[in-house]
Design a protein around this nucleic acid. Structure first.
Lengths: 156, 156
DNA sequence: ACAACTATTTAGATCATATCTAATCTGAAA
DNA sequence: TTTCAGATTAGATATGATCTAAATAGTTGT
């Protein structure tokens, strides 16, 4: 996506295009993974160190509100973000916490009767299990496993 | 659910039945809402003040690991818990953050080809929109709305 | 009933994540 | 240009969750 397109989509949501906000958006769009706010902060400032932590959070909040970015809450870990260019479902690894995009396919919505007076905006599918890497290893690939091993070791 | 049944399901997962752990489980089972850890802490201790905060978190972690309790991560808010007695999907209100259970219905799983070597454990549907109460009001029913109103007011 | 073993609990410190504050700056409309 | 609401900032603060090390209490075997 070219710079002007990003600026236009920001303007379209009533958001000014500032260097900081542009950087967050551009970074998220070229990212296939789902970075945390801290990762975005670091990556953006590595290129151009003009964003404070508050600004990253402010902009993420605004971009999410504008529907340009999606936030995925994680059990016990920092939230992760992606630019909602193409529609997709999510796969979360039970073991290492990684989020991966799954091809999108239509999911049946709840029946009107069961919705009642609720107003439905969207339905997303969260799949859980083991990612390719974790599935093929006995030991976890990240912290949770390290902790486990240390605990086991301590007790001996 | 009677006391013995709870104790049996704890034992079945290799967990001792302690007053504190029993209290958390019993409270979650009779709850139709989805309390946060803080709410569980308060409710459990109102009846019998013997649980520390760490114990609540320890037990929630153990119960989730045992598959007796489900944790639902929330964007920007405390995680919420429910005892996974009956299977159901979730509806999260964009405005007040309330979680409600939706009737369960089967959701098509991702195609084997798109899963690759990943190991799928479960798929859950997260529906978002406005709850009955919020849909019928102009003003939000909780904090986010209050903040909004205060901000608007400040700038005048 | 008792000893022995280990899981569990505890208060408080600490960590991790996110938000707020109030002063300052800036993009873009007129 | 001027103007000003929107945006940014550093640092303080709030919130949510976990860790520590010592004390306690269920289980099991005798």
């Amino acid at each position: 996506m070219n710079p002007d397109a990003i600026k236009r989509s920001l303007a379209g949501s009533g958001l000014r295009s500032t260097p900081q906000r542009y950087a967050v958006m551009a970074f998220l769009m070229k990212q296939t993974s789902h970075p945390t706010a801290a990762e975005i902060f670091e990556a953006v400032n590595r290129v151009d160190p003009r964003s404070s932590r508050a600004t990253i959070y402010n902009n993420l909040r605004d971009l999410v509100q504008a529907g340009l970015v999606r936030e995925v809450a994680m059990e016990g870990r920092a939230a992760r973000f992606d630019a909602t260019g193409t529609r997709h479902h999510h796969f979360i690894c039970d073991r290492c916490g990684k989020i991966e995009d799954m091809d999108w396919y239509a999911v049946p919505r709840p029946a009107a009767a069961s919705l009642g007076k609720r107003v439905l905006r969207e339905c997303e599918l969260i799949c859980r299990g083991l990612c390719t890497q974790c599935a093929s290893r006995r030991a976890p690939t990240q912290d949770s496993g390290l902790k486990e091993r240390i605990n086991t070791w301590k007790k001996k």
